[in-house]
Structure formats: structure tokens, C-alpha cells
């Protein structure tokens, strides 16, 4: 399983770290009641994806580092997402005077 790696840290270690970070982010996304914390959990999940991309880029594609390009694009989209998400959050807060996710239930069936 780990017989063919050259460096001290195998590819699998980075992938396991990314998987753990992603699952923590999913749990936080489901269970947060503060809307700001939901956005933070999304950032955690994006970072987990970035760790995976960078690990693959370094270990399997060391010549043409396409994973790094993808990570740069993910960082760009994450910045745009954070800006728009927080603007939506401010607008929601102005209308409902709360950040509790359980009370944003106007469209709930």
C-alpha cells in the first residue's frame, strides 16, 4: 500500500487530512445555527479540496502543475463566494434582526 513513495510524507497522508477536514466542514455546515459559522464551514470544505488538489499536483503531476492552477481558481471563487455570502447575510440580518439559521424559514415547507 505505502511501498512506493520517496519522500517522508506519503500522498495518502495529505488525502486523509483533506478528507478529515472536509468531514468536519460538512458537520459544521449541517449543525451551525449561526449563519456566519455556516460560511466558515464552507471555507473549511474549500480548503480541504485545495489540499487534495495540491497533493495530487505535487505527487502525480509534478511536471505540469495543473493542480496548483486549479487551487488558484478555487481560491478566487472562494473569495467571491465569501463576499457575496456575507452581503446576503447582512441583508438578511437587516430584515429579520437575527443570524439564527432556524429562523430563516420563510421558504420552509
Amino acid at each position: 500500500m505505502l511501498e512506493s513513495f520517496s519522500g517522508p510524507v506519503p500522498l495518502q497522508a495529505y488525502l486523509l487530512l483533506g478528507a478529515s477536514l472536509f468531514c468536519i466542514g460538512v458537520w459544521g455546515l449541517i449543525n451551525s445555527r449561526n449563519a456566519v459559522r455556516v460560511l466558515m464551514s464552507i471555507e473549511l470544505m474549500l480548503n480541504a479540496v485545495n489540499i487534495n488538489l495540491m497533493a495530487f499536483s505535487s505527487f502525480l503531476d509534478g511536471d505540469l502543475i495543473r493542480g496548483q492552477i486549479f487551487a488558484v481558481f478555487v481560491i478566487t471563487v472562494a473569495a467571491a463566494e465569501a463576499a457575496v455570502g456575507l452581503a446576503i447575510l447582512l441583508s438578511l440580518y437587516r430584515n429579520r434582526v437575527t443570524v439564527d439559521m432556524e429562523r430563516f424559514n420563510l421558504l420552509k415547507w
Binding site: 495529505y14 456566519v36 460560511l39 471555507e43 480548503n47 495540491m54 496548483q68 478566487t76 456575507l86
Partner: peptide, 29 residues
């Protein structure tokens, strides 16, 4: 992982922009 450019971009964009934005949002709400 030998990616100094992406590490610098991570520090600039995430720590410098996104995290400060989140702190501002916390302050406003």
C-alpha cells in the same frame, strides 16, 4: 508541497481578505 506561490496566495486571500471580511461581518451582526 513545493508550492510557494499558492501558499502566498492563500495567506493573502484567505487570511488577509476572507478572514477579515468574516470578522467585519461578525462585528456588524
Amino acid at each position: 508541497l513545493n508550492a510557494s506561490f499558492v501558499a502566498a496566495a492563500q495567506v493573502l486571500v484567505y487570511v488577509g481578505a476572507v478572514n477579515v471580511l468574516i470578522l467585519f461581518a461578525i462585528m456588524l451582526v
